[in-house]
Amino acid sequence: MLYYLLRRIFYTIPIALGVSLVVFTLVHLAPGDPLSAVVGELDARMLAEMRASFGYDKPLYIQYFVWLGSVATGDLGYSMRSGAPVLGILTDAAANTMAIGVLASALGFSAGILAGMFSGYNHGTWLDKTVSSAAIAGVSMPHYWLAIILVIVFSVQFGWLPAMGFGSESSVFSWNTLRHMILPVLALAAIPCAVVARTTRACVMEILSMEFVEALRARGLSERRILWHVTRNALPVVLAVMGLQFAHLLGGSILVETVFSWPGTGYLLNLAIFDRDMPVLQGTILLLSMFFVFTNLVVDILQSWADPRVSRN
């Protein structure tokens, strides 16, 4: 177990380095000088000075190591637009994305697990068919479209909830802010809910068809005790899918945040792309992908805890 843990953690290092290299390269794929978009028509000497101050005059591989070094010390550079430190901008945005991401996951996962369990237990009934169809619709749903549908229904038709923005209060935990969070959370929860429901259903069906369930029944266990065994066996797989879905939700929130103008990482990314604000773009992608790498690690560790067979291989 310990050996597995150490190996898994060690394996994350080259992946994280690779990811950082990809993020760095990506931004330098951009056509033209990242500065020229911001500076515009300036004389050559000033441009050269600015390039030097951002370190853009050095060879690329040196720039990479310099950048990696400063990232390691928590310095992500300064926004080309506002001049504010990227780290500060990013932590504010990440907190906002986390807020809707965590709520959406909690909602989507619990609904998905319940629906999946129910559907798997009542396999073949019309209720199971309804749940399965809803789940496949949810998986195929363009979530930005769902976001617009929610706005039309709840903001335009009924006028119950605000269509966009964050509310005026600075705290996330105010009623007004919560009201602004409801629609983005619903839009984000749909896909994780559907994916988890499908996985749970398949898992429960597979486990119920195994011989040990028959044996448990033969030994006279109550259905509730059997349900516990089924849950215990489905846990590792469902756990893995939930972890990935959570990370995907945070990384993919750009579309939903754009619809609702929710000031999270996705919205920040969108602004940075169209402003060609390279330090912010780089920082945001790096943070989100590193979070993804980290979640994968945590999921694998949790999975090996929930299912000891994983670490034995």
Partner: peptide
């Protein structure tokens, strides 16, 4: 497979947005 792992370590939408956003 190790190179594949690196690209696999990005959420799909994020990677697509990042590449398309950088290229223009």
């Amino acid at each position: 497979m190790r190179v594949t792992d690196v690209f696999y370590a990005f959420p799909s939408i994020l990677l697509a947005v990042a590449i398309a956003g950088s290229l223009g």
